[in-house]
Simulated scan of single mutants.
Amino acid sequence: MNRHTAREKAFQILFQLDINDNEPQEAIAAFLETEESNIFLKGLVEGVTNVKDEIDTIITNNLENWSLDRIAAVEKTILRIATYEIRYMEDIPRNVSINEAVELGNVYGDDKSGKFINGVLSRIEK
């Protein structure tokens, strides 16, 4: 599984975790069923889950005329993943994290999601 696919699956798992109160390992296993897990996927899901409050604070501090509560679940989940990558995963270039997040937003969000995600993430520093 490449990193792009792992991000997409991590998004889907984290989206479910935001709605259901499961443990990350259980959610990964249930989502993947017979498919083998990936260390990058597991790292994203567990990492975002472990520092979610810190990530939400970072996102909140970089919003203009928005509150975290007003952001749709799709965009919020994507922002959490990308913020985690930017702040906690030094081996991933910032522009890669932003581009991947915008792409996920364009696929799973509405027609303005990619632009919104790009705007928020461009204000977040490493």
Rank of each mutant, 00 (worst) to 15 (best):
I78Q: 05
T83K: 10
E85S: 02
V74D: 05
E54C: 09
T60M: 09
L121W: 01
E54P: 01
V102R: 03
S37R: 14
N95D: 14
Y88W: 02
I58M: 04
L17E: 06
E54K: 15
D21V: 06
A82V: 08
P93I: 12
M89G: 01
L44N: 11
T83C: 13
G109L: 12
E100R: 04
I71K: 00
D53Y: 10
D56K: 09
E125I: 14
E35W: 12
R94G: 07
F116W: 07
L104K: 01
N95M: 02
A27H: 09
K76S: 07
R87W: 05
K52I: 05
N20T: 13
A72K: 13
S67T: 11
R94E: 14
S37G: 11
A82C: 12
K115E: 13
R80W: 04
D69A: 13
L41S: 01
I59S: 03
P93S: 10
I13R: 05
Q25H: 01
A30C: 00
A29H: 13
L44H: 10
L14C: 07
E64P: 08
E46M: 15
E103Q: 02
F31R: 02
E33S: 07
S97K: 09
N65K: 11
K76D: 00
E75T: 02
V45I: 12
A101T: 09
K42F: 04
A30S: 14
N22M: 13
G119L: 09
N20D: 11
R87P: 03
N38S: 10
G109S: 10
I81M: 12
I71M: 05
V51D: 13
L104A: 08
L79N: 02
